[in-house]
Design a protein around this nucleic acid. Structure first.
Lengths: 363, 363
DNA sequence: TTGTTGAATCAAAGCGCTTAGATATTGGGC
DNA sequence: GCCCAATATCTAAGCGCTTTGATTCAACAA
């Protein structure tokens, strides 16, 4: 545990200069084979591990990328299950509570997984930082000092902080926010996703009374709502109920659903801004004894795993989450190579995924 | 994107020495309030972000921890689903194939999550490195050079490589391997877990013909097998069939189950080394038309999410995975404070989780 | 006034590596 | 045997920060 050996020790032991040691690791082809072996042997014998700090300082690059994986479930708006040994019972797929949701990878988790896999595939070092509501900014600064490029989720960081960091290293944002226009973005075509969904409900199911529900305020959700209203309008329809967006919190959704049930004027379908919202809606409807899709259809957006498991399974628009994570990494690396390229917004394809909750397949 | 401002720029702008700039960030109380504000203002104006490389080099510590999150599913022994937009169908909980497994957080994912949450809670920086079968060792060295302490999963790194790294920084291993005795460990009581499970099957269900199946070779699995045999022995029983452990791969398990079915001599219960093995067994039994738990009981070990969802839901021994991840972090930080403490092995409590697959609850 | 003390600031020496440019070595070709 | 080009190695100057010990300064007691 004593301070580890350095290039100096290795150089001395191998009888070469420290430059040769460095070359041996960084540009082996510049070093004569016999020398190289001597150096490697010395390194091995001493247990030499190069210091990334020193390398980073000398090179002006850390060689690592960062992901700021803000955990929305730690957000005050959401509850956070206390850790523990609970959850022994079989999971009722009839109704997934908010607690149960954490059992499945959520949107951000799947994107994160994509980032990880792509970094690992490339042998890229990856730093994952996590939000910590108290000192978000400090944490973020710290991360920014450790990496060559940073990927962030929308709404996780105030715009001005992001701008400051982006002065120093490339930043890629998931989704496309109207702020931060000078950053690279990875996004999906929210509008055509919701449009496809809405048209499916209108033409395949002959529904006419649709409403839109849910979604924290974000430009993705803006786009989804707008596309929903636009599609209805194109068919000469208006929303069946006042569309509820943004819809503050999970309690907000539960309330809205409860009042719909009480008033007895359920629409034909509730088009939700996200899968999480949709699951919440399913839960609330189940609690009220309303049957889905018989009495009302429900749809989501994202394609998270829980939507495949819940009963009725969730009709949704699938985002290629892993792919998005991989693209984040790609964009950062490209940006590092070409700092002056104009900001890019990569738009990945979505797909309508028809399951039970719209009435298409047998429950 | 021009090389960012440094302490020198900030110092110049604020009209102080670089030492004062450094103190302003690291030991603010040593700096007069008025000076401090001047420095902060200058930093803000310039968009200063301290370089972690330089800090790390100067301090001799990087301030980050590392997790080497070897992905067993990338292991040649397992298949790896091609990324893509597939998986549209409702998930059949009657039978989770290997493909579907990836939809749920697995053992390593949940431990990783625990590590992340604990680091974030403490404002600790975290690197996650991923295995990459080709250049595992290089990747690992790279990470080792970036962090002050490293957590690894068992079998993910050859012992001698681990030893080498441990000469330089503290290393904590998940589970308790008979190798690497000088490292800190986080583990569970495998033996009493399997013992409780086995006794449950014997006394609650009055079964007598049990077999043990699955598990890549590891000391955890050794312990589990030994405890299984020991428990039977204490009751004057022998295994119903030759216990199959280690059981190479998923195909291996499928084969064993198929031959059990063909020979027509199913035991009363199949006690599996891990939940993943158990799910594989359930899948194979379903394929053969054998009903669980009616014709044969199946049990797992770990407590992964998929076990709650599958039908019949899986009776298992639950490890506190998140807690284990958190403990890894705690041990590393403690070790950094007390390098000379003798190696510790923290043994976390397990719990028998009785669900449907043993026959306890209605399917 | 002078001396003393404590607080605030600074100068300067690294930390372990990379890499340009200088130097040494090698091997041909004559 | 000599010269030159190519190859291998080395020297030395940073990279941006932290931190020790020195210095300056202000305030106050004697």
């Amino acid at each position: 545990m004593a301070k580890g050996p350095t290039v100096y020790h290795v150089a001395e032991r191998a009888g070469v200069s420290i430059a040769t040691v460095s070359f041996t690791f960084r540009q082996p082809e510049k070093v004569k084979a016999s020398t190289r072996e001597a150096v490697l042997a010395a390194a091995e014998a001493l247990g030499y591990v190069p210091s990334a700090s020193a390398r980073g300082l000398a090179r002006g690059r850390t060689g690592a990328l960062g992901l700021f994986a803000y955990d929305y479930l730690l957000d005050p708006a959401h509850g956070r299950r206390e850790e523990g040994l609970a959850d022994p019972d079989p999971l009722s797929t009839e109704s997934l509570g908010n607690e149960d949701l954490r059992l499945f990878p959520l949107y951000v988790d799947e994107v994160q997984r994509g980032v990880e896999l792509e970094c690992w595939r490339r042998g890229q070092a990856l730093f994952v930082g996590g939000g910590n509501p108290e000192n978000n900014e400090a944490v973020l600064s710290d991360i920014a000092g450790r990496v060559d490029g940073l990927a962030v989720f929308p709404r996780s960081v105030p715009s001005e902080v992001l701008a400051r960091i982006a002065r120093r290293i490339p930043v890629v944002e998931v989704s496309e926010s109207e702020l931060n226009r000078d950053l690279d973005h990875v996004t999906v075509d929210n509008a055509s996703g919701i449009r496809a969904m809405t048209e499916h409900l209108l033409s395949e199911h002959g529904m006419t009374r649709l409403m839109f529900l849910g979604g924290m305020p974000s430009s993705d959700n803006d786009q989804r709502l707008r596309a929903f209203l636009g599609t209805l309008h194109d068919s000469g329809l208006s929303p069946a109920n006042e569309s509820k967006y943004p819809c503050g919190s999970d309690e907000g959704i539960a309330e809205v659903v409860a009042s719909l049930c009480n008033d007895g004027n359920l629409p034909d379908a509730i088009v939700c801004a996200t899968d999480q919202d949709a699951l919440m809606v399913l839960d609330s409807l189940a609690a009220a004894g309303i049957s889905v899709p018989t009495e009302v259809a429900v749809t989501g957006f994202d394609g998270i795993a829980a939507g495949r498991v819940v009963r009725p399974s969730l009709t949704t628009v699938r985002q290629p989450m892993e792919q998005m994570g991989r693209t984040l990494v790609r964009l950062l690396l490209e940006r590092l190579d070409h700092p002056e390229k104009p900001p890019a917004a990569v738009r990945l394809p979505i797909r309508l995924v028809v399951r039970e909750s719209c009435g298409c397949k047998a429950g």
